[in-house]
């Protein structure tokens, strides 16, 4: 029997393949930020979050908001792989008539809120956390932020607000890959110490390697056990993680070279098929 970590790593690898396949198929999209988020999204959807794939609108489900909505292919892949909708739908990404819009949209099964206009997801998450508190319900709200979007002032409005209202049922996760659209976060608008910033607003701060499942899962657990204050996980990640030519290259924030990605996709498929029967029966 394989252990939980190994199993999650396989799902993460499969999501990476899905992302590469979807974006090369669509001809546009944002691969870099999908790949940096893949391990965290996997841990959320395959372990941490309490959801019912067969009943995506279950009122007591945990909520997830992908504030960095441009990374939605990895979220769509996770939803498909959990059985919320068929995997074959992934090839419709960004096509007219598809429910897999270029950025997440609330009417898509499994998507809890529209997002993609940056800097606003944590506010929405705070609203969900407030609603849970009023109703004395136990669902939790998870929000993943990109580090680029933290340039937006509204992020800090919501950060203040969540600690003021003691939203311990809210977890923020920063996908800290240190690259944004036009370059590194230090070049564009230096963030200073990310940890100190959040601490200054009285959040419980946990810093981890965002690609290490053995750090991600314990961080989720610590967050769940922290009362009276919200928790943020600063996840140090690598943009483009898992595709060598994309790693740490800000130009791969968006699809830079469709042919190169399509080529990579074929290569990945071949490698994964040979590596493990787990993949062989799931690749498309």
């Amino acid at each position: 029997m394989i252990d939980k970590t190994k199993e999650l790593e396989r799902w993460a690898q499969l999501l990476r393949y899905d992302v590469v396949r979807m974006i090369s198929n669509a001809g546009s999209g944002h691969p870099g930020g999908c790949l940096s988020a893949a391990d965290i999204i996997t841990c959320l959807y395959f372990k941490e979050m309490n959801i019912r794939p067969e009943e995506p609108d279950w009122p007591d489900r945990d909520r997830f908001i992908l504030s960095k909505g441009h990374a939605c292919p990895v979220l769509y892949a996770a939803l498909a792989r959990r059985g919320v909708f068929p995997v074959k739908k992934l090839k419709t990404l960004r096509k007219a008539g598809s429910f897999l819009q270029g950025h997440p949209e609330i009417h898509t099964s499994g998507i809890d809120m529209t997002s993609g206009c940056l800097g606003q997801g944590l506010s929405v998450g705070a609203g969900m956390a407030v609603a849970a508190k009023i109703d004395r319900k136990f669902y939790r709200t998870y929000v993943m932020l990109g580090c680029g979007e933290m340039n937006e002032g509204q992020v800090w409005e919501s950060v203040m607000c969540a600690s003021h209202f003691k939203l311990d049922n809210l977890l923020a996760i920063v996908d800290y890959n240190r690259l944004q659209f036009d370059g590194s976060v230090d070049e564009v608008l230096s963030p200073g110490s990310m940890v100190k910033r959040w601490k200054g607003f009285n959040w419980n701060v946990i810093e981890i390697d965002g690609h290490n499942i053995n750090e991600i899962l314990p961080a989720f657990e610590k967050a769940r056990n922290t009362k009276e204050v919200p928790t943020v996980i600063i996840a140090n990640t690598i943009k483009g993680k898992g595709v060598s030519f994309m790693e740490n290259d800000y130009l791969w924030h968006s699809l830079m070279d469709r042919d190169k990605l399509a080529e990579k996709c074929k290569q990945m498929k071949k490698d994964m098929e040979n590596a493990d029967s787990f993949y062989a029966k799931r690749l498309w």
Binding site: P59, R63, I106, D112, M113, Q120, S123, V124, G125, A126, G127, M128, A129, V130, A131, A132, I134, D135, T141, G153, Q154, E157, S158, M160, C161, H164
Partner: peptide, 20 residues
Amino acid sequence: IGVAEQNEMAIAAGAASCGK
């Protein structure tokens, strides 16, 4: 919510999405 209308509006949307 304080003097923060953008946050206020998005929080409102979040709470409304949960049935309020």
